[in-house]
Design a protein around this nucleic acid. Sequence first.
DNA 1: ACCTGTGGATCAAACGATTGACCAGGTCGC
DNA 2: GCGACCTGGTCAATCGTTTGATCCACAGGT
Lengths: 336, 336
Amino acid sequence: MATLGDVAARAGVSVSAVSRVLSNHPSARVSPGTRERIVVAARELDYRPNFAGRALKSARTNVIGLVMPDLTNALFTDLIDGAEDEVRDHGYMLLLGRSDAVRAGGDVIGRLIGEGRVDGVMVQLGDAVKPAALRTLFTAGSPVTMINARQDGHVGSVVLDDAVGARVATQHLLDLGHQRIGAITGLPATFTAQRRLQGFRATMRAAGLRVDPAHVSKLGYLPHQGRAAMRRIMGAPTPPTAVMVANVNAAIGALAEARAMGLRVPDDLSMVSVHDSWTAENTWPPLTTVKMPFYELGRTAVRGMIQRLQEGSGVDAVVTEPPPRLIVRESTRRPR
Amino acid sequence: MATLGDVAARAGVSVSAVSRVLSNHPSARVSPGTRERIVVAARELDYRPNFAGRALKSARTNVIGLVMPDLTNALFTDLIDGAEDEVRDHGYMLLLGRSDAVRAGGDVIGRLIGEGRVDGVMVQLGDAVKPAALRTLFTAGSPVTMINARQDGHVGSVVLDDAVGARVATQHLLDLGHQRIGAITGLPATFTAQRRLQGFRATMRAAGLRVDPAHVSKLGYLPHQGRAAMRRIMGAPTPPTAVMVANVNAAIGALAEARAMGLRVPDDLSMVSVHDSWTAENTWPPLTTVKMPFYELGRTAVRGMIQRLQEGSGVDAVVTEPPPRLIVRESTRRPR
DNA sequence: ACCTGTGGATCAAACGATTGACCAGGTCGC
DNA sequence: GCGACCTGGTCAATCGTTTGATCCACAGGT
């Protein structure tokens, strides 16, 4: 690989001249002729700035870590897309990691930052993270942004408008005429689960309806947890006629279980889920969902991180634009 | 962050002594006492070797790039898992990128290697890559491993045993008694599509059955392409009683389309797909699939890459162990 | 007493890019 | 005609780590 020195030699100038020209340094006082020679030489040698050299000197990598519990969850497609688009606009790169590795190989985040591999880390935590482990992550003022979660004493987070998402989903069921509505949500300790359940309850309360405790389950966002929740809820003395599921993966599991139980959706039971993904339109029946702005979530997280890196102050943001949007497919209908 | 110098000062020794001790250098002739002081000092300061410094000096990053067309395809879960596990065993890290970016932001692979961000790149190409673009990637002997594809003149690839996968799927349909069997596969230019179609044809031939050209479609691996293929194939004068789909995502689309067309699966049409994923067990009916060893594919790709980095010679490998395995669910039955 | 060997540690030169300090020559003001 | 200032550059230190070369003290062999 060509180095600055090679380019300098070919252009007949000093290394520093080349450096200043190629990185558009403001203090670059260079004659047009010299500039041209340098640019040409660089192109001819296919010069690319060495990452390590640059990072070592400037103590910045222009890389942001994105750590997720499960990189392949269909849900996170848009999040990663948005983050990618936004980093590219700012000349950064994205380094993806599994927070899975937190338990297994020890503390990815600490390594990423401690070894100077990234300038900052955005982390979406899994359900299985103990708050104690968290505290050690956030050593004073380290550039860590939490996605879909908040932590006391730590500033730097980006979250969805969960309560509104749950409200839109619930309101759709109310509008269809349902009254006995259940909710399948995530583990009680989960930030999003709390907010979505709260949105659900508030909407029901506003409609003057009470929620049967037996119609609420908090088993988790995974398909098999959705299945278990479905079995439990529909085993209630008077089962609901509709159910709001706080996550599309859980909804897919719940849908499969409903069918296995001999329930017809939407004839016997309406189902709507928060989140949309391509998997939702390929279930049977296709799922009615509320699409949450994951793409914007990704962009916003990156924007917040870059602002923090450049100006030193973190932000706590809620992504409200675009708002959660109802996508009506075939898993909901009016009660019989 | 603590540097080698800080540790050296605290332990009262030279920087080089610290370096040799902490990196277990073979030529480290150090007295037990000194070693102990160094180790203690490093721990107290929470020393972590600076990535850039190390990479600059040693010209190795211990990072391998994994470039995929679509990071969130449910199919690649196991591949990434396997790759992660294998790199960790060797003290490497994985840098994930989208080959998507090849068209958009210009040549990720070139940047990754050219800027020295990674030691090598493993790339799974999307369907939409032009062979011309490829040739420029593989500049003489650059450490690039292709996943699920081969390229003339380039050594370094890892592929699945596609023909066997297709054979197992097809044989299952034959064993059930089907005779008019169709195939839905990927674009003709795709490496895997060719091999799977070939496996399908060979199996049919071995059974003494002929394949109706109208029962074969090569529209692609995406859900909507699977839908289109289903519509086309079932519009044939005498439609097949069973169909082998070469990809689970296409199969999910095809399944949805079959239902939309009023076909009952498996009563009117049996369907089996190559590849398995959690989405396959949550469709209705749950899909019968052939599970391909993606996890081992990931491990093997990494092993090949690391071998190449350390010994200089690439390998072309086929992952045959474990062999493709039939998972019978509810989308196949004997013909009526 | 003198050379040799060796264990235990330090010195110093890289790696490639960045950037403040510096310098040679020309122009301008007075 | 002389200092001030600008233009167009170069010098050299620095970031943190690695590693071949070197050095010192001391033991053993002759």
